[in-house]
Amino acid sequence: MGFFDKFKLNKLKESLTKTRENIFGKIQNIISGKTKIDDEVIDNLEEILIGGDVGVSTTMRIIENIRLRVKKDGYQDTADIDSILREEIQKLFMNGYTENGEPFSIPSINKPHVIMIVGVNGVGKTTTIGKLAYNYRTNGKKVLIAAADTFRAAANEQLEIWAERAGVEIIQQRQGSDPAAVSFDALKSAKARDVDVLIIDTAGRLHTKVNLMEELKKIKRVVQKLDPQAPHEVLLVVDASTGQNAIQQAKQFMAAVNITGLILTKLDGTAKGGVVIAISNELNIPVKYIGVGEKIDDLQPFDNKAFIEALFEKAS
């Protein structure tokens, strides 16, 4: 593990400390003074998971598995619960999880590699795109951003600032123009300019708005006229403070544009992470990146092992 990786891991741990303190600090509380796993311990565990936005059905599943194992393997000691819980959560993560390979690398056969970013309003799409572009650029890729959020006031201006920070170029038209047309033009010029990665920013939309979801499908269709394989990735950005509605979001965006991965943002706040488990479990969509701050390098490839490891490391 290189220095850089280590640095990143530390930062991840740091940003997850709150989650850890919350969940596993609580586990310590439950088991202090107790040596046997009984109903009370299990009940408390349930509360902790639900309190972490894991959701009722996923929590039930985890608890059920723990109960079974306690019964079958004869775990009795509360000290075991930490490791059982870790294993159970990891199991759920493994659903739909594929090896990411090198972070911020792309298959060389796609030229350009087209990434479409989608999500509901206010989750941090534009900010994430800035960070994503920066990471690809520093990895030696030529990056272009398509400003296809033509709806929100000043979306272009905001994206311009992020593009400048990331040191990449941007293709835009005036507010109110057709986002599909912007994307089409952007891909055309990406091809002409020999760009490696094209990132399409789309307007935030609630997944229940039929017309807006149709608009998203249209962007995809139009882009496919130039490259039938594009977009190679469709990433759904999810705000970590979102509750169970994140599952609905994932379902609807999946149905419309077949999302290939998730980006979990604002993980630098308090007590989150549960949504990821629920979505991984119920929809088999891997989490690709996490956002842990407002600076341009605050985007990290999601590594579930490190995530869980960091989650379970006892606060020192």
């Binding site: 972490g52 936005d53 206010g122 609630l206 997944h207 308090t270 989150k272």
Partner: peptide
């Protein structure tokens, strides 16, 4: 759409600002 963490944010803002009222946004979703 905020989940379980809503209580923490609301409390933190309330402790600092003692706000008068709450606005719930994005209720046009599901």
């Amino acid at each position: 759409m905020t989940g379980q963490d809503a209580v923490n944010t609301a409390k933190a803002f309330h402790d600092r600002l003692d706000f008068d009222g709450v606005i719930l946004t994005k209720l046009d979703g599901d």
